[in-house]
Simulated scan of single mutants.
Amino acid sequence: MRLHILAALILAGCGVSNDPILGGNSASAQADRPGFEVQELAQFKEPWAMAFLPGTNQALITEKAGRLLLWSEDSAAVEVAGTPKVDYGGQGGLGDIVPHPDFARNRLVYLSWVEAGENDTRGAVVGRARLATDGGPRLDGLAVIWRQDPKVTGRGHYSHRIAFAPDGHLFITSGERQKFTPAQDMNQNLGKVIRLTDTGDVPKDNPFATQGAIASQIWSLGHRNLLGIAFAPDGRLWTHEMGPKGGDEVNLIERGSNYGYPIVSNGSHYDGKDIPDHDSRPEFNAPEVWWNPAISPAGMIVYSGGMFPAWQGDILMGALSGQALIRVDVDGARAAKGDQWDMDRRIREVEQGPDGSVYLLEDERNGVGGKLLKLAPVGG
Rank of each mutant, 00 (worst) to 15 (best):
V328S: 05
R33A: 12
H100G: 00
W311N: 10
A31Q: 14
I21W: 07
D205M: 12
F284A: 04
L170R: 00
G55E: 08
H160R: 05
N18F: 11
G332N: 06
A104L: 12
F52C: 01
G66F: 05
V289C: 12
R346A: 06
Y359D: 03
P99S: 01
L360D: 08
V350L: 07
A163F: 03
G156V: 14
D274G: 10
G272I: 05
G55W: 13
R107E: 09
K151A: 14
G66K: 03
G356L: 08
F171K: 05
N187W: 02
Q178C: 06
R334N: 15
E176S: 01
A310T: 09
L227H: 15
A333V: 05
D149Q: 11
T121R: 05
Q188N: 12
N57P: 00
G168D: 10
V144H: 00
L252P: 03
G256N: 09
K192F: 10
L372P: 03
L6D: 15
G267I: 05
G322P: 06
G247N: 11
S280V: 00
N366T: 12
G117W: 01
G272L: 06
G260D: 12
I21L: 15
E63V: 02
K64R: 15
T62Q: 07
S296W: 11
A49M: 08
S304P: 00
T121H: 01
Y261Q: 03
K151V: 13
S72V: 04
W146D: 10
Q30T: 13
S265N: 13
V328L: 11
G191T: 05
Q58D: 14
F284R: 08
P47Y: 04
T121P: 03
L69R: 07
K273T: 15
P262R: 05
E288F: 01
L373K: 10
W291L: 02
A215Y: 09
P20R: 07
D274W: 03
L108N: 08
Q58N: 09
